[in-house]
Structures are given as structure tokens and as C-alpha cells.
Design a protein around this nucleic acid. Structure first.
Lengths: 342, 342
DNA sequence: CTGTTAGCGCGTTCAT
DNA sequence: ATGAACGCGCTAACAG
């Protein structure tokens, strides 16, 4: 086993290539970079061979140091174990690679202190742009970073930060959910959300829900946050005397998981006793009870467009900030068949 | 909106701090690094103030270039959307941060060409160590990398690569699954695996299964790969006349998802018509039918130990390569209650 | 204890 | 079309 303790990585450098090919470093640099056209065929060929023979790889650190371009994009994620975040991140990474960029992902585990540390870290590695999918506390540092590089928000707005933003059209999503439930004959809807923590999308979904249920005469709406005694609260909702079928509207995959689990624990039949529609479309939705009806987010595209926003700015776009709101896709399954409507 | 097209990031540099504090760059460097003890209190204080006033952050690129230490660890992941990979990665990242390292994750989407590109990429960023959770084709490049830096394999061995390795004790996992099924009264076990693609853990699980079912007189074992007509194959298994209850053993979460889906499609009652035990413990296992019995992997610890292996090597450990095999944890749920045993 | 000097690997003026 | 020389931001070796 080798000894990696000392930093004697004998990597082959540009100088090695130059000597091997009998040219100067500058020529090698031109070959590596975008100035290959300036080289004679003969020299280009010799350099190419030398590179192949030595297995030379340009050192991105050194390039970044000199040019200020590291080809690195940073992404700050609140919860790496949330499938939504993973899906968006996958979209971002694909777009990055397609344009020669690499992605450095930092997971904050919903912890403000970690967010701060990661922010400093990303800055120290000279990333060229930043994608933020967290609560965005530490506003000062975000502002400071935003002076140095383009920044785009995903799913969550950050107060007072004037930057591009890509996410879901939340009022529309709520509208689609309520319309679907109403058509299916449900009359009493309980929105289940993760606890309020300032997440803008969460707030938007709840306030849209409250506004729209107030507008619809055939529907009553109630809001519930997930908690340890979620089951008891659901039981109350189901027990309450009411005219017409009841349904849950879970505002993301995590809430759907918690609600489904709680429904099982209180012995509720899925989904005859209560309907269910959930935001996000996780791969296990079809497997639970008669299948969970979903409002799928176009996560791949959300990620791709987030990167696209960055790329425009990096290329000099100074237009006003853009807000991209995507529409969800309704995927009907068994969990919204029981309302007697149609 | 600012203009980020030019690389005129007016970042504050070490020289700025030095001038502001009226000292030399070297002193600032000592303050930043591990030599702070060599500084007088007076100078240290002035530097500290200058740093605070200017908001100075050391440039990791430059540090890495000079010292050969980038504090960067690379991780190559075959499938970022596999919950197992995410869980391990979370463990790695936590361990990294605890020791001042950062993690650069590259997802290959099971594509060999992407694996090659990512390998070159990670090298170009001077990572100090590499964690590999892919098929590890491109053996030459892996070998070359392994000459330059420590490397640890996760879950999957790579032929002819003599490096540390951390993963699951697959024979033991199979043994636990079969013993549990046998105790629960099942007599015919169908192993469901993702298609053979050379993944060592996949192969080990299947061969252990074949060897152990051959040993057990009360059990018969069959192997099935997931495919488009998985449902038909499962139907055959269920229809085949046999004395005693039948059960499925899914060798990972993906196989469990596919099998469960197929069972539903062919109208199988979960889990009265057939038992099921699955490797990995995904958060939706409790929600399907009467709940899926799981063999959970200690993913957090697997990740942490993988990083630990790297760290030892970086600190000069030249001992023989280590192989860490973890035992899974049996989590009993409703899917293995129907065998009539006890 | 502190400052000066010389690179790390590379890109980019200048010349030629 | 090509090369020499300088500097990116930082650390390390040597003076003092």
C-alpha cells in the first residue's frame, strides 16, 4: 500500500508536456484552451501525442486561480434526503455536465449553522454560481455572495434577495388539487403540511389553500401541521360530523408519508374512508392502498432551468430577475376515487 | 443586476489584509494556518481585525495549489436516485465535515462513459481521496488514480483493485433472511434481483442464496431478475403447485419496489398470498400492505467508516487493505407473518 | 517573532 | 505562429 501522507503527488504538469513535445508551456496552454486555432498542425500534433503519452490532465485549481473561472457551480440543499431535492439536483447536475460545469452540493440538514459554514466553504472554492434550496437565513452572507456571483433560488424565496427564482406555481397547484377533489365529490379538505418554518413555498400553498377554499362554496378547508400526534388530529377530522366525503391534501412528499402512516395507525381504510391527493410524485405512491393521486413537479426541468439562469448571467445577461413558475402534472390514482363524484 | 460575465471578482486577498494590518503576507498566512502560535498577540489582533473588517476568506484553490492539500474528497456514485447511495453519501458527508473535508459527488447514472469523465474531473480538482460506489469499469484509470491517492470501495468490489472496502456482509444477510423466512413457515423462496451487471454485491447475494438454499432441506430457492414481464414470472411462481407457503426475497430497495408493483398488478393480496422480505429499509416499507419486513443496512456507519479508511491512509497508514463487512438489522413487519410458522 | 524570497501549475500579455 | 516573462493567491524556506 502506498504512502499518501506526504503530498508528493508526482502528477504530470504542463511543463512536462512542453518539454516532451519540445515546445513552450504557452503552446501547450493554447492547445488546452480555446486558442488551438493559433497553432500549426505540426506542433499541435506533437503536443497531442505528448499529452496522450504522459496522461496529462490540466490542473483545474491552477486554471481557476489564474482565470477566475473554476467551472464549478455550488448548490445549497436543505435536506438531501428529500426526494424532491434529489430530483432537482439530478436535473442541475445533468445540465451542468452538458455545459462543462461541475456541481458541488452542500447539504445543510436544515441547520442554520451548517448553512453558514457551507456558504463560506463554497465561496472559498471560487464557485462561479450558486443554486440555493434552503431557508436562506444568513441574509447578509447571501447578499455578499450575490454581489460576487449569480445566484438562483429553487422552490423557496428568500426575503429581500433580488435574484432569479425557479419553482412551482403554487396557487395553480392548489387550484388543480381542489378542482380535482371537488369534481371527485369530496367536500371537506384537510391540508397537511410540514410545520411552518418560513419556507416560502409551504406558506404559499397554505395561504392559497385558505383563499381558494373560502371562495368555493362547495368546499370547506382546514389546515393541519404534521406532529407526533398527527394520528389523533386526523382522527378528529374524520370523526367530525359533516355532510359529504372528506379528503386530505398533502403539500409535499414528506407530509404524504407522515399522513399515510398516521392513517394506517388509526385503522383508516386507504382510501375508502378518506381521499388523498399529494404534491410530488414519489415512486411508492402507486403502492399504497389503491394508489395515491399525485401532482408531480417537473423536477428535472426545474433543475435544468435553474442552471440555465446561472449560465445566462455568467454570459453577461443583466436583465431584470426572472421568476419561473412551473405547472404540476396531475396523476390520478385510486386515492381520489371514493368521493362519489365524477 | 450585476454583470458577472467578466471575471472581475474583486475579492479581497491576503495582500489586502496584510496591507490593512500593516504586516507581511507571511504573517497573515500564519494566522490563517496552523502557525498562529508563532505570532505576537499584538499582530494577531491587528490581523484578526483586518480580516473581520475586510471580510476576508482564504482562497482554497490557491492553498490547495501550493500545499497539495485541497481538503476535498471525491465520491463516485452509480445512481444518485437510489436511496441506499443517498444514505451512504449522507454518512460520508457528515464524517467529512467533522474533519474539515468537503465532498464532491459525481453521479454516473450507471453510464461507463460518465464514469470515465467524472474520474478525470475529480483528478483535475486535486481531490485527496476517492470513494467509489460504481461498477468500476475503466480499471486502468482507477489504478492510476489509486497510485496518486487513497481509494475506498463501497458496496461493490472492483476486480483486481487492491483497496479498502466497506459494505454489507452478504452471506450473513442472506442467512438472516432465509432463517427468518424458514422460521415463519415459508418453504419456497424466490429471490428477486436487479439484472446482473457485474455488481459484486448483487452476485454475492445470489450465489449465497443458491448455496444456502441448497443446504437447507426445508427450503427451495429460485432466482429471478427484474424485467418488463416481472409480473408474469411472479405469477408463474405463485401458480406452481407446491407444498407450503411461498415468499419473495428482494435483494435491494429497487427490486422491492419492482416486485411489489408487479404483485399488485397481477392482483396478489399483500401479503397473504405471498411473503416478502427485502434488503434496505426504505421509508415506505411500513405503508405497503401489512408492511414489508426489512434487512436494514447501517448506511450512516458505512459512509462514516468509508471516510475513516481514507483518513487513515491520508495520515500515513500503510497497513494491508481492510475489508469492513457490516451486519444488517432485521426489522419484522407484516409481510412475513403469513407462512403459518412461528 | 517577523519579513523576504521563491515557487505551486497555469494563462496571458508582450515580443519575436 | 511561437516563446519568454510575469502574476493569480497562497505557503514554505530562509534570514534576521
Amino acid at each position: 500500500m502506498n504512502d499518501f501522507s506526504a503530498a508528493q503527488r508526482s502528477r504530470v504538469t504542463m511543463l512536462d508536456v512542453a518539454e516532451r513535445a519540445g515546445v513552450s508551456k504557452a503552446s501547450v496552454s493554447r492547445f488546452i484552451g480555446d486558442d488551438r486555432a493559433l497553432l500549426s498542425d505540426a506542433i499541435a500534433l506533437r503536443i497531442e501525442q505528448a499529452i496522450a503519452e504522459l496522461g496529462y490532465r490540466p490542473n483545474q485549481m491552477a486554471r481557476g486561480l489564474k482565470r477566475g473561472r473554476t467551472r464549478l457551480i455550488g448548490m445549497l440543499v436543505a435536506d438531501i434526503r428529500n426526494p424532491y431535492s434529489i430530483a432537482v439536483m439530478h436535473g442541475v447536475e445533468t445540465a451542468c455536465r452538458a455545459h462543462g460545469y461541475s456541481l458541488v452540493v452542500c447539504n445543510t440538514d436544515r441547520d442554520d449553522e451548517q448553512e453558514r459554514q457551507h456558504l463560506a466553504l463554497l465561496r472559498s472554492y471560487n464557485i462561479e454560481g450558486l443554486i440555493v434550496n434552503t431557508l436562506g437565513h444568513h441574509r447578509d452572507e447571501l447578499h455578499e455572495l450575490h454581489r460576487e456571483m449569480p445566484l438562483v433560488l429553487v422552490d423557496r424565496k428568500v426575503d429581500g434577495l433580488d435574484s432569479d427564482m425557479v419553482g412551482l406555481n403554487n396557487p395553480q397547484a392548489v387550484e388543480m388539487a381542489l378542482t380535482h377533489l371537488e369534481q371527485r365529490g369530496y367536500r371537506h379538505v384537510l391540508l397537511v403540511t410540514e410545520p411552518y418554518d418560513g419556507t416560502s413555498s409551504r406558506i404559499e400553498r397554505v395561504s392559497s389553500f385558505q383563499a381558494q377554499t373560502a371562495q368555493r362554496s362547495r368546499l370547506t378547508g382546514t389546515v393541519l401541521e404534521t406532529s407526533d400526534d398527527l394520528g389523533a388530529h386526523l382522527q378528529n377530522f374524520l370523526n367530525a360530523p359533516a355532510a359529504g366525503p372528506k379528503a386530505l391534501f398533502c403539500t409535499n412528499g414528506v407530509a404524504a408519508l407522515a399522513a399515510t402512516q398516521a392513517l394506517r395507525e388509526i385503522g383508516c381504510r386507504l382510501f375508502e374512508d378518506v381521499g388523498l391527493i399529494a404534491l410530488d410524485d414519489l415512486d411508492w405512491y402507486p403502492l399504497v392502498g389503491s394508489g395515491i393521486t399525485a401532482l408531480a413537479q417537473p423536477t428535472q426541468e426545474i433543475g435544468a432551468r435553474a442552471f440555465d439562469c446561472l449560465l445566462r448571467r455568467l454570459r453577461g445577461d443583466v436583465d431584470a430577475t426572472r421568476v419561473l413558475d412551473f405547472a404540476p402534472l396531475l396523476i390520478e390514482r385510486g386515492s381520489t376515487l371514493g368521493g362519489g363524484g365524477g
